[in-house]
Design a protein around this nucleic acid. Structure first.
Lengths: 157, 157
DNA sequence: TCTGTCGTCATGCTTTCGTGTGATTTTGGA
DNA sequence: TCCAAAATCACACGAAAGCATGACGACAGA
């Protein structure tokens, strides 16, 4: 997490310096201030959004676990007061699949490419691949299509 | 989490200080640009973070409502004397997908590789690829996983 | 007979996947 | 505070998958 903030700072510094250079080199336009101000604003707003999304993304999975009733057959799970792992989660842990791996698996099932998944979750493509590999291994799948099929059979999706 | 905010603040401070230094080093003119630029940057960064967090938070809800809709059984097809196109077939022809392509699609959905499909149907791997490509195109899919997903949505599988 | 669709197959090339290996960072507990 | 599991990322490499293009025979209908 620290790294993000660091990157943020560095990028900011570089950007400002760069703008300074450009300014003194090329123009003393009338509206330069407004223009550069706007650029800075836009840029930092963008970076901010990115950072915010990243930070907030952490907190997500807590809520993600919700009712999801495979119509197939799995008998209705009696829900206790405490966060009883849904049939979904039980099966998941039974196979040793981590929540993150499940998340990736879900996106795979929706037909996203590794790259798209990486973009969606704000992680690198390599990371997605790693999660995929592990999930496939735990599922006993050799391909992503097979993994999806198996996951559905197991009631994981 | 507290730590993050702290780091953020510190970095911000450093950034501002840095701007100050640069300013005093190079010029006494127009310090306004750096100062205001920095202020704008920080402000919008803050707004961005807030906004990003908000957006991410909203996405969480979207994910939650992923309740699985009752998958209607492939409605008991009233078998006429003649080969009456099932709802399945109607959809298929609607999309211009040939029977052979459907066949391949079905095997793809089961997680078979092109090679395995070729072996199963006693045709060459190239042929399988061709059928796949055409089916994908008709479905508007870029990948086989996506094709499977789309086909299921369309009630083809 | 001519035409269009379907199924078959090949070749060359690009892209995506999947695996192996190794490393660092976060995080939740003991 | 220290450990173990999770999550993150890189890089290299082989294996699949996918795309474009062209080709050929079978068959149905005009």
């Amino acid at each position: 997490m620290k790294r993000h903030v660091l990157v943020f700072g560095v990028v900011g510094g570089v950007l400002v310096s760069l703008l300074r250079l450009i300014e003194y080199r090329f123009l003393i336009l009338e509206h330069s201030f407004e223009i550069y101000g706007g650029l800075i604003a836009l840029t930092f707003a963008g970076v901010g959004v990115w950072l915010g999304a990243r930070v907030a993304a952490r907190r997500r999975e807590v809520i993600v676990r919700e009712a999801r009733v495979p119509v197939e057959m799995p008998a209705p799970v009696a829900a206790g007061v405490a966060p009883v792992p849904s049939g979904n989660d039980r099966k998941r842990e039974e196979l040793g699949i981590t929540p993150r791996e499940m998340e990736i698996l879900g996106l795979v099932a929706r037909g996203l490419s590794n790259r798209e998944i990486a973009g969606t979750l704000f992680v690198s493509e390599n990371t997605v691949k790693t999660h995929c590999s592990r999930a496939f291994e735990k599922l006993g799948a050799k391909r992503r299509t097979q993994a999806v099929q198996l996951a559905k059979e197991q009631g994981l999706l």
